[in-house]
Design a protein around this nucleic acid. Structure first.
Length: 829
RNA sequence: GCGAGAGUGGCGGAAUUGGUAGACGCACUGGAUUUAGGAUCCAGCGCCUUUGGUGUGGGGGUUCGACUCCCCCCUCUCGCACCA
């Protein structure tokens, strides 16, 4: 510890001292305790990329403040940490550095664990887990098999983006202008067999339960709802002229069906080839399909292709009108949504309108908006709103909403259609042709087909003795010792599935495994999950608003249905923290605006870095990084430090509060309790750490100005002690090392971590003197110092007699006087 | 295009059952102290034509009183994006 006249506190010594103590004493270890109320606080676990960045610092600081705050409030707080350790970057790093993904990953974990400890985060390190360990992923292999048995996992052949050079499948975002992001070679569509989770079975529940997630930001819920994308409409079969098969379409506007003048189907639709085979159109259509496929692949995100299509030569019959409608294949129809085919109503759908104009197809109005008469000849765009039906046989005269029901009912009754609910949500494809992931526990037998690995044989361990070459190809596909196996059913020779699981599978249930990370009798220990789950507060970046959070919600529901959990939703409250920005951009290596937390911690200490990241912005907003702001945080801590050091003797005997207080004593006592109230409210549930810190700064400013040399009246020792204790207690969750050290220095026996959060005295916080604002015609003209609760008549007299007020009311009629109790008096002249 | 959110000093941000706009901090300016300081302390700090006026993206409205409520418009950020 430094001496009194030193300007800076010795953060390095203090921080390592307390970190050592927390580590060796296992201070934050918790277990189930039925007598205490639990609080499960979780931050999204990191990918072990190498070193922590500012985003981590911010995320984990926010979480740690809440954890420490709740602990001081008396909760049994579960606050774990682990590693989302599988994934592609490890393979890329392995190629680049000629190492092994496992080595790279475990080294990163070791390094980053040290960095997190340097931040003074209050984790129960006994619960640390890494998803690349087989004692973790073995359980998701078990889930996989159980879900397969329940029919919630199935294999499907899909078209994927395949890079022949790299021998791998590419995700949509890895295809850049139709080429591989890594080798820049052309990407081709390829049919591949993959495993799918039937998340669509849960679409309705996932959607409905959004309404119950009151602790989630509305923004995230909206994104989830849109992603699930429920629409209610009708499915209708159109007969195809001269053929026995039918064309089934989905529409949300059955009310417009009498206005259909053509049909459009997706280029990939199986009927396209069937309808044109051997006809004059065959070549033209095939050419169009090929061109469109390429164009779609090259299509950049956000880009819309010009509407284009080609006539197939076939006609569909509108079951309502008997009209013969030409069937086009069009580039804007999506195979993956609805049935991949739509009826086209140019008068009431903008896309169809544009298409009809281009190809000179008739436009038929069947909806008339109120007070307007649409004329097909004069229309410049489709009318998509509601209205009254016209040209619609028996349905003419109905309003859109009624017509939707009646028209669908007719289809249902006559057997050519029915009401249909459609979701945008697709089943979750989890197969990855990657090495560094959890093996999919399936076996392919020529004779018996697909067989799950027997549960007793789990885990299917990812072989470590492989080398990763620069091709990017997973070594598992050619590793004979791995894929060569026996069929569990017939015992014959069989091939093991060589794909691994999407890493999102691991992160979909880790929060549950934290409750019993060492449990070996199963994935989840009932007593542990029942006590700890759900997570009370989850904190992480908004970039996970859709996928990770949706998959976790889905996993919670399937684990419930498998009997492992009893909860419906994993995260009661969600806080999505903003990004860390510098010079207007998100910190990134490519922008060159990265600030390394390690350097800052070395320069200022963890407490300062924590304090600044809390103070600079409220957590849900982006944080603009400012090096000078860090200085400010550091200066504040030093001011507190110097005050305590220089008043050590006064504070050390821990004087108690006198019964009679001087005026100065009363004022400081009041400010202390007002600050306790403000900080408690700001942290609890609101997470307004920035305003909490500014309130503590105010208290500190009051304290130092009241006790500086030239004051006539200084507060009593007991009041000063109370204020100093409050400052340390209120700061404790944010700057834990700093406050512990000073707390100990002041002679407190119990660690601050274990000390209850201070309570505030309502009476003490009450103001007895108030500044009353006097307004004339809505403008502030004067201020009055009055006692609280003074009579309104007295106030009125005082205000009217005030010199500054007199100037503005002299010689005018007073029309009205409005008094807002303890706030202001407004005179209208 | 659709959906959500946001526009307040030089900067980060405070303040909304309508009631002192700019808390707290950064930067800046002046002073003190110091061998020196990027340390510390004191004072000042929205703008203007400063006994006053004006000001929370712009315009209008309600009100004694509007950052806050209502209407119109502009800008920015994020998400989705040919979803039939």
């Amino acid at each position: 510890m430094a001496t009194a006249d030193t300007a800076h506190y010795d953060f390095a010594a203090i921080e390592s001292k307390w970190q050592q103590k927390w580590l060796t004493e296992n201070t934050f270890k918790v277990s189930e305790d039925q007598d205490r109320e639990k609080y499960y606080l979780l931050e999204m676990f990191p990918y072990p990329s190498g070193r922590i960045h500012m985003g981590h610092v911010r995320n984990y600081t926010i979480g740690d403040v809440v954890a420490r705050f709740k602990r001081m409030q008396g909760y049994n707080v579960l606050h774990p940490m682990g590693w989302d350790a599988f994934g592609l970057p490890a393979e890329n790093a392995a190629i680049k550095n000629a190492t092994h993904p496992a080595k790279w990953t475990y080294e990163n974990i070791d390094y980053m664990r040290g960095q997190l400890r340097q931040m003074g985060l209050s984790y129960d390190w006994d619960r640390e887990l890494a998803t690349c360990n087989d004692d973790y992923y073995r359980w998701e292999q078990l889930f996989f098999i159980e879900l397969y048995e329940k029919g919630l996992i199935y294999p499907k052949i899909t078209v994927v983006n395949w890079c022949e050079t790299c021998q791998t499948v590419l995700a949509r975002e890895q295809v850049i202008d139709g080429c591989c992001w890594r080798c820049d070679q052309g990407v081709e569509p390829r049919e591949m067999n993959g495993w799918f989770f039937k998340i669509t079975d849960y679409a309705e529940e996932l959607l409905a339960e959004c309404d119950n997630l009151q602790g989630w930001p509305e923004k995230v819920l909206t994104m989830q709802r849109n992603w699930i994308g429920k629409s209610i409409g009708a499915q209708v079969d159109f007969a195809i002229e001269g053929r026995h098969d039918t064309l089934t379409i989905f529409t949300t506007r059955p009310d417009t069906i009498h206005g259909a003048t053509f049909m459009s189907i997706a280029p990939e639709h199986p009927l396209v080839a069937a309808l044109t085979k051997g006809t004059a159109q065959e070549d033209a259509v095939a050419d169009f399909v090929k061109r469109t496929t390429i164009a779609k692949q090259r299509q950049k995100a956000g880009e819309e292709l010009d509407k284009e299509g080609v006539f197939t030569g076939a006609y569909a019959i509108n079951p309502y009108t008997g009209d013969k409608l030409p069937i086009y294949t069009a580039n804007f129809v999506l195979m993956e949504y609805g049935t991949g085919a739509v009826m086209a109503v140019p008068a009431h759908d903008q896309r169809d309108f544009e298409f009809a104009q281009k190809y000179d197809i008739p436009i038929k109005v069947v909806i008339q908006p109120e007070g307007e008469a649409l004329d097909p000849a004069g229309m410049e765009e489709a009318y998509e709103g509601p209205g009254k039906l016209v040209n619609s046989a028996d349905f003419s005269g109905m309003l859109s909403e009624e017509a939707k029901k009646s028209i669908t009912a007719k289809a249902d009754k006559e057997g050519f259609g029915q009401q249909q609910v459609t979701y945008r949500l697709r089943d979750w494809g989890v197969s990855r042709q990657r090495y560094w992931g959890s093996p999919i526990p399936m076996i392919h037998c020529q004779k018996c087909g697909v067989q799950p690995v027997p549960k007793d044989d789990l885990p299917v361990t990812l072989p470590k003795d492989v080398s990763i070459d620069s091709s990017g190809k997973s070594p598992l596909h050619s590793l004979e010792s791995y894929y060569k196996t026996c069929c569990p059913k017939c015992g014959g020779q069989a091939r093991r599935e060589t794909d691994t699981m999407d890493t999102f599978v691991e992160s979909s249930w880790y929060f549950a495994r934290y409750t019993c990370p060492d449990y070996t009798d199963g994935p989840l220990k009932k007593e542990a999950v029942d006590y700890w789950l759900p997570v009370d507060q989850y904190i992480g970046g908004v970039e996970h608003a859709i996928l990770h959070l949706l998959y976790s919600r889905f996993f919670t529901k399937i684990l419930r249905d498998l009997g492992y959990l009893t909860i419906n939703e994993p995260f009661t409250n969600l806080l999505t923290q903003g990004m860390v920005i510098k010079d207007g951009f998100k910190m990134s290596k490519s922008k060159g605006n990265v600030v390394d937390p390690a350097e800052l911690i070395g320069q200022y200490g963890a407490d300062t870095v924590r304090l600044f990241s809390l103070f600079a912005a409220p957590p849900e907003k982006d944080l603009e990084w400012n090096d000078q702001g860090v200085d400010g945080a550091y200066r504040f801590l030093n001011r507190v430090y110097r005050f305590i050091i220089s008043n050590q003797d006064l504070l050390k005997n821990n004087p108690s509060l006198p019964t009679e207080l001087s005026k100065a004593g009363q004022a400081l006592h009041r400010k202390t309790h007002q600050t306790i109230a403000k900080v408690s409210q700001d942290i609890d549930g609101k997470f307004h750490f920035n305003t909490a810190i500014s309130a503590i700064m105010e208290l500190n400013n009051t304290l130092s100005s009241m006790t500086s040399g030239d004051q006539k009246q200084v507060p009593e020792k007991g009041v000063i002690t109370e204020a100093v204790d409050a400052i340390l207690q209120l700061l404790a969750p944010m700057v834990p090392h700093f406050t512990e050290e000073l707390w100990q220095l002041l002679g407190h026996k119990e660690e601050l971590t274990m000390t209850p959060w201070p309570s505030f005295d309502k009476d003490a916080a009450k103001e007895d003197e108030i500044t009353l604002v006097v307004q004339v015609n809505g403008k502030v003209r004067s201020r009055l110092q009055v006692e609280a609760g003074i009579a309104e008549e007295t106030i009125k007299k005082m205000a009217l007699a005030d010199d500054r007020v007199q100037k503005f009311i002299e010689g005018r009629d007073i029309r009205k006087v409005i008094i807002v109790k303890n706030k202001l008096i407004s005179i209208v002249v």
